[in-house]
Amino acid sequence: MKKIAFILSLLCMITAFTGCTTSTTSAKSDRISVVATIFPQYDFARAVVGNKADLTMLIPPGSEIHSYEPSPSDIIKIQNSDVFIYIGGESDTWVDKILSAMDIKNKKIVKMMDCVTAVEEATVNNANDEHEDGETHEDEEEPEYDEHVWTSPKNAVKIVSAIKDAVSSVDTKNAKIYESNATDYRTKITELDTSIQAIVSKAKTKTLVVGDRFPFRYFADEFGLSYKAAFAGCSKETEASAATIAELINYIKQNNVKTVYSIELSNQNIAKTLSEQTGAKILLLHSCHNLAKSDFDSGATYVSLMRTNALNLEKGLN
């Protein structure tokens, strides 16, 4: 028994060390407090407020977003914030629950899904078109909207404006600064948008093959790209069926596809399998949904990540 106790306490100690929480809340000052749940809105807010406000990202970089459960300290941060920005989609339904239990009179809330025109999530996986086991369900339930609205640069611009409006209305003192910051960032994003549009129009193929989840619906729609992916949307499924993978392999072979994309923070198992079987190269397509701590620490922004995407698009679609 002594040996077990020793090993257990060792494991506990290791857990304790790895389980250190990160962010601290700043004291109340005359700076407003802005809380964003995940990276896209954090990045947009950061571009707008610069260092004129206290900005917090709730979910640490690299953490799994889709199964995130807020801790009491997270709830307190949201409670104490002046501006709160979240997506309003499948992955943060917990926000609605928290907000309904909170006094939100004095809070400005930005719900990204409301800033743009949302599209319903594809329920049919494109890759499985021939393999439908007669499963076309008519939507009897609430339609699920794809929540990755920021992947389209045009949407990103709208969201930046919305955030600027929100912080300016609370922090009127710095409104002019926010306006100028926002304009700067919008310009950068629009430049990005144009360059990607150029790449796509010159591209040999206009189909994205993604050996991973597919959070790029808005991106693909905006630039007129069609796609084949291992999952429909950003599925909660963790494993694509063998049949789906076989389908993708066949598609890649038949259409001479040279590049398979995988997304950020992926174990790339599917992409590697596809690549191994077909010889296709694997390139990264970053959805900016989440990012590795190392990227976060080295100052990655939506624009910088998207620029890399543009390069990889150029390589992969030609």
Binding site: G19, G62, S63, E64, S67
Partner: peptide, 10 residues
Amino acid sequence: IAAKTTGMNT
């Protein structure tokens, strides 16, 4: 450990 480091991911 999973919840605290990478989350319950894939």
